[in-house]
Design a binder for these strands. Structure first.
Length: 277
DNA sequence: CTCAGTGTTCAGTG
DNA sequence: TCACTGAACACTGA
């Protein structure tokens, strides 16, 4: 699930149970792929007793700012999510299906807080990672990332500089986390569709006006998705998003225009040839 | 049974 | 060395 808006939703969920609380108890799954660079017992020992000051995010990475390092850093991979027990109060919608068991299937870490609140991270497909960092923002992988389009969208001027030297396809550029952190496959397609740009266009072929429009659309798509808490059913009806999953159905259309599928930069790409040039 | 897949990394290429 | 591409990764669900 996780592109920037879904990771932001996970951040809010985690913040609602973790911030200002002390970590009382941790259970780590015995998974040396997801739990990377640290053994589960060590991870547990480093977290227990710490107070969570804030839950922060850059791109698709999220981490706990604790009262003392090291800090746990999470990446959800393709299938990761955060969960809280059914019935626990929340200002936002619950992230779990009602009636789901606790702990949730495929849990990798469970954290219990001083006030009784609980948080779990799941990861069925094991592309996610849990790591420890002394200072997450100033170490890899976060210090390798480009701008976060929600937290600090660059000026058009700065974007022109960044884009004009790149020869990758627009699709490839948008997916490059060292360019724009948090953009994934569906957001890249949505942005290129709304900006009217062919996903195969080379980045350095864009005009100033096209870059300005790309910037505007990128900011708008991300803010809109975050505003509705990454709830797909609340994305605007006009979005390509709603038809991009219908690859199997014959002749998907949007506004009467035909949706096509391509492979660009190694990823399935949905686009509307009559609207993107 | 086969295959695609919302992500990242790494080997290979130009 | 750099920028970029495509395969590999691990596993579920269609």
């Amino acid at each position: 699930m996780p592109e920037l808006p879904e990771v932001e939703r996970a951040r809010c969920l985690a913040a609602s149970v973790a911030e200002r609380r002390v970590i009382d108890r941790v259970r780590c799954a015995d998974d040396r792929i997801v739990i990377e660079g640290v053994t589960p017992p060590t991870l547990t020992r480093k977290l227990v007793g710490r107070r969570v000051l804030a839950v922060r995010r850059h791109g698709k990475h999220l981490w706990f700012e604790l009262d003392r390092p090291p800090m746990p850093l999470f990446h959800l991979g393709m299938t990761g999510a955060f969960h809280i027990p059914d019935g626990e109060h929340l200002p936002l919608q619950s992230s779990i299906d009602p009636g789901e068991q606790w702990p949730p299937r495929f849990w990798k870490i469970q954290i219990e807080f001083s006030d009784g609140g609980q948080l779990a991270m799941t990861n069925a497909r094991r592309f996610g990672r849990i790591r420890l960092r002394e200072c997450p923002e100033h170490e890899p992988p976060i210090d390798q990332l480009g701008f976060d389009p929600l937290l600090d969208l660059p000026s058009t001027r700065s974007l022109i500089q960044q884009i004009s030297t790149r020869r990758a396809s627009l699709k490839g550029l948008l997916l490059d986390q060292s360019f724009a952190a948090g953009v994934g496959n569906w957001i890249a397609d949505e942005v290129l569709y709304q900006a009217g740009l062919d996903p195969r266009r080379k980045a350095d072929s864009l005009t100033t006006e096209e870059i300005a429009e790309l910037r505007r659309v990128l900011g708008r798509v991300i803010r809109t998705a975050v505003r509705v808490n990454a709830d797909k059913s609340r994305f605007p009806k006009s979005w390509l998003f709603h038809v991009r999953w219908n690859q199997n159905t014959q002749n998907p259309t949007l506004d009467g225009e035909s949706v096509q599928f391509l492979r660009v930069a190694g990823r399935t790409t949905a686009w509307i040839p009559s609207r993107q040039h």
